[in-house]
Structure formats: structure tokens, C-alpha cells
Simulated assay, not measured.
Amino acid sequence: MFEIYEGALNVPEIYAKWYEKSATQNCGAMLTFCGIVRDDDEVQALSFDIDEALLKKWFETWKQKLNTQGVSVFFAHSKGEVKVGQSSYLAGILSKQRKLGLKLINDFVEDFKAKAPIWKYDVKNGLKIYAKERSTKLEGAGILA
């Protein structure tokens, strides 16, 4: 399940939908990661730009990889502005056993942070400022020679 939302995520609603879908899958563990915007350095919100086609391709690669292990993956992310205290990212792994699920949710989130085509901006005093110091250069990005 891959979902992009405008603005903050409604975590209880999304989680309930994922849980309902997982109830018929005969799995023992549904593990989630919820990213929440925090107030660092007087940030009032974060704003996200997404290349949805590339993000979907990244997700589909993970989905196929995990499917071979009998594991399902869930993903929701915000585009646009998300205020402090609100969620912008929710990821989930559904697996037969918790140990595998715990490893995979960590691997998924770390790979997301390194490779997802999402650009993050701090919002301070109504201005969007690219969060360069918290960004990772995407493999293959840039001007071709």
C-alpha cells in the first residue's frame, strides 16, 4: 500500500486501514514507524516536495523484494506543509515473525532516508528554507556530463 497525502497524515485513520488489511493475512507482527515533525531551531513546520513517479518506483522495488520473503510493506508520506507535532511519514511492515519485521522496518526506513526522492524544507517565519544539512544526495541525481 503506497499513499501520498496533501499536508499532515491522519495517523489513526491510516493505521486503522492498514491494521484492517493485515487482519486477514495470517501474520504475527505489524511494525510501524511514525515520523513526527519536531521543533528544532525554531522550525514551525516542514514542507515536502516529492517526485511521485520516482518514489513509487523506489517503493515497488521494496515491495517486490519483501514479497519474496512473505512480507508486506505499507507507506504513507505527506507533500506540502506539515506543522510541528504532526506526522509526515508512516511506514509499516507486516511479517509472520517480529524479529524479521523489526529488522526490515529499520532497513526500509534507513533506505528511505538515503534514497527517497523527497526534498525537505524548514518553514520559519513563513519562509521555506531548503534543509540542506539534513539532506542526502540522491544517487544518479544532478546534471549529466
Score class of each variant (00 low, 15 high):
V71R: 04
V71N: 02
V73N: 05
V73K: 04
V73C: 09
F74C: 03
F74T: 00
F74M: 05
F75S: 07
F75W: 05
F75E: 13
F75Y: 09
A76Y: 08
H77M: 05
S78E: 06
G80N: 03
G80T: 00
G80P: 03
E81S: 14
E81D: 14
E81W: 01
E81Q: 13
V82S: 14
V82E: 11
K83A: 15
K83R: 13
V84W: 08
V84Q: 13
V84A: 10
G85F: 15
G85S: 12
G85D: 14
S88Y: 15
S88G: 12
Y89C: 06
Y89R: 02
Y89T: 08
Y89A: 04
Y89G: 01
L90C: 09
L90F: 04
A91N: 09
A91R: 02
G92P: 07
I93F: 01
L94H: 02
S95L: 05
S95C: 09
K96I: 15
K96G: 09
K96W: 07
K96R: 12
Q97W: 12
Q97N: 14
Q97H: 14
R98W: 10
R98E: 07
K99I: 08
L100T: 14
L100G: 03
L100H: 11
L100I: 10
G101I: 00
G101T: 02
G101W: 01
L104E: 03
I105F: 01
I105W: 01
N106D: 12
N106T: 14
D107V: 01
D107Q: 06
F108M: 07
F108P: 07
V109Q: 02
E110T: 04
E110M: 08
D111L: 02
D111T: 01
D111I: 00
D111W: 00
D111H: 02
F112E: 07
K113Y: 04
K113W: 04
A114F: 15
A114V: 02
A114P: 09
